[in-house]
C-alpha cells in the first residue's frame, strides 16, 4: 500500500492503517530521536509526540514521502527538547540508556556510539543519522533540514570524519 492510500484510510478512521503506519515507521523515528538525543525514555516520549502531531494535523498533509514528513516533525521536536534542556541542564548530559531492570553489560557498543555521537554538533549529528542510519539521499536530507545540498554534503563529510576519528581514539570516545 502506498503512503497516499494509507493516509486516505487513516482519514476514513481505518485503525488497521494506523497499525501499518506504526509498524512501518515507529522504529525508524524512535531510533532517530534516540541517536539524536541520547536519552532512551525521552526518545519514546518524543516519538509518541511525533505520531500524535502527525494525526492531529493530518488534514494538511501534502507531502509525497511520509517518512520524510515524520522525520521533519521528529527533528523539530528534538530541537524543542534541546531548547528546554538548555534551560534546565547542561546539554552535555550523560547519555541515558538501558532501563532499570536491564543489565548494562552488552551495551558497550551502543554506549560508545551514543556518547561519541553526542560529541558532534547537533547539525552534523542529525545529518549523519539521516544519511548513515536512515539511508536517506542527500536531497531528501536537504529538504528535511531546510538547508541547501552543498551544506548538507559538507556537514556530512565533516561529521563522518569527526565521528570516525573519535571512534578510533585510544579510549574510543568513552568519557574516562
Amino acid at each position: 500500500m502506498t503512503d497516499k492510500e494509507l493516509i486516505r484510510k487513516v482519514h476514513n478512521g481505518d485503525k488497521e492503517a494506523l497499525n501499518l503506519i506504526i509498524a512501518a515507521y515507529y522504529d525508524d523515528i524512535y531510533r532517530f530521536c534516540l541517536y539524536l538525543t541520547g536519552q532512551e525514555t525521552d526518545s519514546y516520549d518524543i516519538t509518541q509526540d511525533v505520531f500524535l502531531r502527525f494525526i492531529k494535523y493530518i488534514d494538511s498533509y501534502q507531502h509525497r514521502n511520509l517518512k520524510g514528513y515524520l522525520l521533519i516533525i521528529a527533528r523539530n521536536l528534538c530541537r524543542d527538547y534541546f531548547h528546554r534542556k538548555r534551560d534546565t541542564a547542561c546539554i552535555e548530559d550523560a547519555v541515558c540508556l538501558g532501563q532499570e531492570d536491564k543489565q548494562l553489560t552488552g551495551l558497550e557498543d551502543s554506549l560508545l556510539l551514543f556518547q561519541t555521537l553526542q560529541k558532534l554538533p547537533v547539525k552534523q549529528r542529525e545529518i549523519i543519522i539521516m544519511r548513515i542510519y536512515e539511508e536517506l539521499p542527500f536531497h531528501e536530507i536537504a529538504r528535511i533540514t531546510g538547508c541547501n545540498l552543498s551544506t548538507v554534503k559538507s556537514r556530512f563529510r565533516l561529521g563522518a570524519g569527526h565521528l570516525r576519528k573519535l571512534l578510533e581514539e585510544p579510549f574510543g570516545g568513552y568519557d574516562v
Partner: peptide, 12 residues
C-alpha cells in the same frame, strides 16, 4: 559507521 549503528540497534 553503518555497521556500528546496526550493532547498537541489536543491543537496544
Amino acid at each position: 559507521l553503518k555497521s556500528r549503528f546496526t550493532a547498537a540497534d541489536r543491543q537496544l
